[in-house]
């Protein structure tokens, strides 16, 4: 699309303290080169509506704060160029499937509660080694590949907003928590499958996923939560049939100290903290 002269932002406004129902408000701005939806919101706040509320932080698609429902799709406002939407009318609403705190600010607490319940961290018995490492947990490149793509998740909530099951079933944990649970189940350094299974084997687990695949379509970081959920289902079915045996968490190996730096590679900068 060629750059328009003006862009109209149709923004859903809602203040639960004063309103019963959300309303839509239009703001027309002159287009500037490289304008993102977040740039537009900032301009509106500076020039037209100081009370407009949203979350944002990094402005570069890393922090996951600015997930919004833009022209009918969950996207990151900072990562969405106005021209890529192909229209002069940009509708912006808060992410669906979440309660609204105000304007474009969704209540993400249920998502993070579900995330925490699925223990998204390395679980091992050698806690002393984890607290005071004497070496490194061995992991081959192949083992890393099993979960690497799921580590790119920034917890923006776009997948949760796109999921038709999250929309209808409050007991379902949703794609982000489940994918992050699988990320640790698939990590060769982890030994926490049995602990996570206590939650995953219940109604909160992956069973209600229809494999619509909308979560993977919506993810701004290219993560494939739908794949993680299907892999998790397979793992849990095999576990029920006694066909799955979690491998022992990887062993501690001594830190490599014998490697010498190539002469053309400069030293890393000194630590600042």
């Amino acid at each position: 699309m060629t750059a328009p002269a003006n862009v109209t932002f149709r923004i859903r406004r809602f203040d639960p303290a004063t309103q019963q129902e959300p309303t839509w408000e239009d703001f027309t701005l002159p287009y500037t080169a490289g304008m993102t939806v977040l740039d537009g919101l900032r301009k509106i706040k500076e020039t037209a509506s100081p009370s407009l509320a949203w979350r944002s932080s990094c402005r570069m698609g890393v922090c996951g704060s600015c997930g919004m429902f833009i022209n009918g799709h969950p996207r990151l406002a900072c990562n969405t160029q106005v021209t890529e939407l192909g229209t002069e009318l940009v509708t912006v609403a808060p992410l669906p499937n979440f309660d609204i705190i105000r304007d474009l600010v969704p209540e993400l607490r249920p998502m993070f509660d579900a995330h925490a319940a699925l223990m998204p961290h390395i679980i091992r018995e050698d806690t002393a080694e984890m607290q005071e490492p004497t070496g490194e947990y061995f992991q081959s490149p192949h083992e890393l590949e099993q979960f690497l793509q799921f580590t790119y998740c920034i917890k923006c909530g776009c997948c949760m907003a796109a999921c038709p099951t999250v929309a209808t079933d409050p007991a379902y944990s949703g794609p982000m928590p489940l994918a992050q649970s699988h990320r640790y189940n698939a990590d060769s350094r982890d030994g926490g499958f049995a602990s996570r299974k206590r939650v995953l084997a219940t109604e909160q687990g992956p069973w209600k996923c229809h494999y619509a695949g909308e979560c993977s379509q919506a993810c701004p970081k290219g993560v494939d939560p739908a794949r993680a959920i299907q892999l998790m289902k397979r793992q849990l079915v095999f576990d029920y049939l006694k066909l799955y045996k979690q491998p022992c968490p990887s062993k501690v190996v001594a830190k490599v100290t014998t490697i010498t730096r190539r002469p053309d590679v400069p030293e890393a900068p000194a630590k600042t903290i």
């Binding site: 219940t202 069973w207 849990l236 049939l241």
Partner: peptide, 12 residues
């Protein structure tokens, strides 16, 4: 564990 059991039997 019930959902894990039911789902597995559903597949079988």
């Amino acid at each position: 564990m019930r959902d894990q059991r039911l789902w597995t039997w559903h597949l079988l």
